[in-house]
Amino acid sequence: MKSPIHQLHQFLLDRFTSSELRQFALFYWEGVSQKLPGESISHADLCMQLCTALQRLGLIDADLFALLERERPRFRPEIDQLRRHFQAADASTPAADTSQPLIAFVAANPIALPALRLAEEARDIEDKLRTTGARFRFQSTWCAGPDELLDALVETSPDILHFAGHGGRNGALLLQTAEGGAHPVAPAALAGLVAARPWKPRLVVLNCCYSAVLANALRPHVDAVIGMRDEVPDDVGRRFAVQLYRALAQRDSLATAFDTARAALRVYNLAADHLPQLTVRGAVDPQRYRLF
């Protein structure tokens, strides 16, 4: 079953246009409106970023559901069910346990580059993790630029840093500017940032094209990095990531999880199992290393 936040995402995706959601943010949630990117973002990613912002600001409340009912009265039974799911989740959710692994999902899709199904990737990863019964924390950041990447690394100190988006042929991460353009971050720059932090991610997953170069630059500073050797189709990266996290959450070793995710690509008839690359720091044994 989908988590309540993903059910809300699907409801907004199906029942509202991007223009309507931007108007709601402008009139009802000024703090949220300021965080939304430009018109270039896909409808799915806009819905996911809006849901994430509402959740972080504590705005998924009675006023939100009243607004949904007022704007879409035909769907009151669906909205009421959505409300009950959030209430049940709130009642059963304990205080955040910082001993649980934190996954920071950072996504960027500049305007001029092909649109990726990043919201679907985040949703599928989180939903698959929940089916395993694993205990974890999942935090997503959308339309990420330099500030958002710094926030993800410096403020949250994640155990797993997952980047989803585009990569340059030179190994650079392609983040977004405020206007939606591409902002390249060179491998040496990101490696320097990670090296400077006292708390480093245990695993970095670079689900973007040509990221093996960046993976090699990060290797001296983190226990393990997964990158892609070449251009990687969107469905390949997404399916690889989902299977990787499922295996990790079932307490498979890093090596077993990586090999399982690669082999799964063949099951999907995707001849791309040569693309993912696992790189580990010298003292790390991937056959014994576990993240959950």
Rank of each mutant, 00 (worst) to 15 (best):
F65A: 04
M228V: 02
A263L: 14
Q23C: 09
P220R: 01
H183N: 14
Y210E: 01
V185S: 01
L8D: 05
R15N: 14
D159Q: 11
V32P: 01
K2C: 11
E69D: 10
D285R: 13
N170M: 08
Y245W: 06
F65R: 03
D127K: 10
F163V: 03
L173D: 06
I103F: 00
A283D: 15
F86M: 00
M1L: 13
F75K: 12
G171C: 09
I79W: 06
A272K: 12
R84G: 07
P73C: 13
I60F: 11
A257V: 01
V194C: 09
V232M: 02
F24P: 06
S140V: 02
D159T: 09
D147R: 08
A215Q: 00
L193S: 01
L21T: 07
V267K: 06
G227D: 03
A44G: 09
R246E: 14
M228L: 06
D124H: 04
D273N: 04
P73H: 13
G58N: 07
H43V: 04
A247V: 06
H6S: 14
N109S: 05
R197P: 07
A217L: 06
M228E: 02
W199K: 15
H43M: 05
D234W: 07
L175P: 00
T256I: 13
L67G: 05
E179F: 06
L265T: 05
D61W: 08
C143M: 10
D97W: 05
G282F: 08
A91M: 12
V225R: 00
W142A: 07
R202W: 01
G180D: 03
R130C: 08
F16K: 03
T93K: 12
A186W: 01
R84F: 08
A247I: 04
R229Y: 10
P276C: 10
M1G: 15
W29T: 05
L203W: 03
M48V: 02
H85W: 01
T177F: 04
F65I: 05
V205Q: 04
Q10H: 14
A186N: 03
E30A: 15
S140I: 01
H6G: 10
A53L: 15
G237I: 09
S92W: 07
I79F: 09
L21M: 14
R137H: 10
N269V: 14
L82Q: 03
D90W: 13
L248R: 00
Q10C: 11
T256F: 10
P187V: 00
